[in-house]
Amino acid sequence: MRARFLGKDPQSQVGNSPTLYATDRTDRATYIAQGWIVTDPQTLTDIGPVPDGEAIIEIPEDVLKYYARRYQQEANRA
């Protein structure tokens, strides 16, 4: 699987860059999100158990705009 950079948090500093990537999977559309690891106890309680191999991350809303932009581009091609 390959990952293609879509965009990163425009307010991020070097070494602290929540980022969104698209994958080239052919069986379904998937994305890889790089973000801050959630360690807040209340948030983790609210979410509940996290399965092995998964992680809870936080990303800024601005990063999700890159998903919306890609989705819009795909819809315009159809």
Rank of each mutant, 00 (worst) to 15 (best):
G48Y: 10
D24H: 07
W36K: 09
I59K: 01
A33I: 11
N16E: 08
Y66W: 08
Q42D: 15
P49F: 03
I47E: 06
L20S: 12
G48S: 10
E58N: 10
P18L: 05
T23R: 15
A22M: 15
V38T: 08
A22T: 15
D40T: 14
Y67I: 00
I32G: 09
I56E: 00
S12H: 07
D46Y: 10
Y66N: 06
I57D: 07
I57K: 09
R25F: 14
Q13T: 03
Q11I: 00
T23Y: 14
E58I: 04
V50T: 12
G48M: 13
A29M: 10
P51I: 02
T43W: 11
Q13Y: 03
Y66M: 06
D46K: 15
L20N: 06
G15S: 12
A22S: 12
Q11T: 01
P60Y: 08
P60I: 12
P60W: 14
W36A: 04
V63C: 14
K65D: 06
D46E: 15
I37A: 11
D52E: 13
D62W: 05
E58S: 14
Q13M: 05
D40H: 15
A29I: 12
K8E: 00
K65A: 13
A29V: 12
K8T: 01
S12Q: 02
R28H: 09
T39M: 05
L20F: 09
K8H: 00
G15P: 06
I37F: 03
V50N: 02
I57P: 03
